[in-house]
Amino acid sequence: MSRLSPEQREKRRDLIFGSLLLAFSVVWTGTVYFTVPVGRGVGVGPQAFPLYLGASLIGLSALLLLNAWFAKGQAMDVPDDEEPDMVPIAGWPLARLIVSVCLVIMAYGYLMQSAGFVIATMLVVAFTLWVVVGVRRPVLVVGMSVGITAVSWLVFGQILGAYIPRGTWISLF
């Protein structure tokens, strides 16, 4: 199986990113053009700035694509975190990890409002350690979930006097 060189990886990355960016900027510009009113009076209205920015991004992403396309054979920076001896995590495992972190944070927000800070924090820390990170030491998982919850409750709520959500399902502390 052939491995991509750092230059090829960089080029592929720039091509993918440039294409996504171009699509995004076109959608942005179109949405601004059709949904934001031009405004009234002298000078420029509310539409102008986002429209200029969208147009600028179209130009920049096109340049990025061209730059990547013609970068064949050019020596490029080797990313520091992708040394050849590193075992990379990519593809499905990486996507699963990223989605997990995203969902954990979202679930934490939902739980904080409904179950309150204390329950939400304990559950989220335990879940992250056990499921996302894969820690299989119950003492560490329980200790960390209780410890982090207690310390943050103490610092945020008691020392700094910040609002601690109590939840709508059940009220603790």
Partner: peptide, 19 residues
């Protein structure tokens, strides 16, 4: 993660900010 979640929630007490 806890600091991210709580920090973003506490700005406007909004779950939308956490999302």
């Amino acid at each position: 993660i806890v600091m991210c979640g709580y920090g973003s929630f506490s700005i406007r007490n909004s779950v939308f900010d956490v999302y």
